[in-house]
Design a binder for these strands. Structure first.
Lengths: 152, 152
DNA sequence: CGTGAAAACACTAATGC
DNA sequence: GCATTAGTGTTTTCACG
């Protein structure tokens, strides 16, 4: 897939604010409205842009307590892996879950209200999943950087 | 701040797809177009919805190699912390950076094309920052779950 | 890629429930 | 706080040059 300078700039703009008008993007890119419109449609059709979403302030909805939790399974049997992953998908508190190399098997990003809610989550939901060997929770002290933008 | 059931449903809808028409949301919520419109405006004004963005498929833009990098500083002096954080903000490859409790000081999410680009990033950009004690890279084998939604 | 025109939608406002 | 209606102005969308 080939992207020129304009595509890359446009992706940058759309990844930071998708609610502006095509006219505004056109002005910034020194193009006509249709040209921009067609580029956007092309990026959508190609699947480069997967969707458009609203971003929510965690503090305003009382989910400002972020935890990065490292999980190790007791064994790496396919059955255990699949079951763990299936269960994780059901947990709304888990925003992200990555199967990783290194000391732990999985790294999860979890949004809850506070420590109490996290405790509750750990006891009743996370460790309720079978085959978990150990967990190590890293509490987020400060969000230095947090962007959804993939820099092309 | 108070949110009723409808607000919560609406936030869920908008966090998953913000490009639908007010009419469509109205239908799903069994409300009129104006009612939904006013709720959205209220959520925006209150700062609950911070902005709207396009999400990009990392694979399609050749940034599918995700690394979670754990960073430890040599010392936790304010000056070192601030300098590190200031430098991190400049690195486009770093999508997220959290100051955390636990064994490491920071956990970073990094998007690059492949291992080679990661190596280059480590050498020329990350470890070029002063006061870094040690790093530990966890490579993402599989993205089990990845959502921008904050579950209210 | 640009122009121009029609269709769809966002937005505002007023009335009444 | 919501439904309905009506009206205006933008924006999206698309045929065509």
């Amino acid at each position: 897939m080939k992207f020129d300078e304009i595509d890359i700039k446009l992706l940058g703009l759309l990844q930071n604010d998708s609610k502006r008008t095509t006219k505004e993007y056109a002005l910034q890119l020194n193009l006509s409205v249709t040209a921009v419109y067609e580029r956007i449609k092309r990026l959508e059709k190609l699947g480069v842009i997967t969707n458009y979403v609203a971003l929510v302030d965690k503090k305003k909805v009382n989910k400002a307590f972020t935890v990065l939790c490292h999980v190790k399974l007791v064994q790496h049997i396919k059955e255990y892996v699949l079951q763990f992953e299936r269960e994780i998908l059901k947990l709304n508190e888990v925003a992200e879950c990555y199967h990783t190399s290194g000391d732990y098997d999985y790294i999860l990003k979890i949004y809850v209200a506070d420590m109490e809610e996290y405790r509750e989550f750990m006891i009743t939901k996370l460790t309720a999943i079978n085959h978990i060997g150990s967990t190590q929770s890293s509490f987020v002290i400060n969000e230095v950087k947090s962007t959804t933008e993939v820099f092309v």
